[in-house]
Amino acid sequence: MHELGIANSVLEAVQTEAARHPGAVVRKVAVTVGELAGVDPESLAFSFEALTTGTEWQHLILEIQTRPRMHRCPACGLDFRVVDYQFACPECGASKTECTGGDELELAYLEMEEP
């Protein structure tokens, strides 16, 4: 259950950014979570709610965007989504392909109302 710590890091980042926009009201924060990030989106949502309830941030919406594991084939250049650990290139059959995405744990954007 390290999602509570991650939820706290998200909230801290929001507070830091909000401090740069005096008077603005932050409505939403979007976070990108890859399937290899080792973070459970439901636990993260639950932790974030627990953390913000009863505070000035309780109306802040957390949007979690999940990202699949992506690979690129060095032989033919195809980018493809890995399903059920099938790493071979579906186009040319090359067995060795490179992981290019899926371990993201990133803050994507904030939506705020400026005064």
Binding site: I6, S9, V10, A13, E17, E106, L107, Y109, E111, M112
Partner: peptide, 15 residues
């Protein structure tokens, strides 16, 4: 509504 891109890691302080 103003959208502010952040594009940084959640655990950037740890990293």
């Amino acid at each position: 509504m103003n959208r502010v891109p952040l594009e940084k890691k959640v655990l950037s302080e740890n990293d």
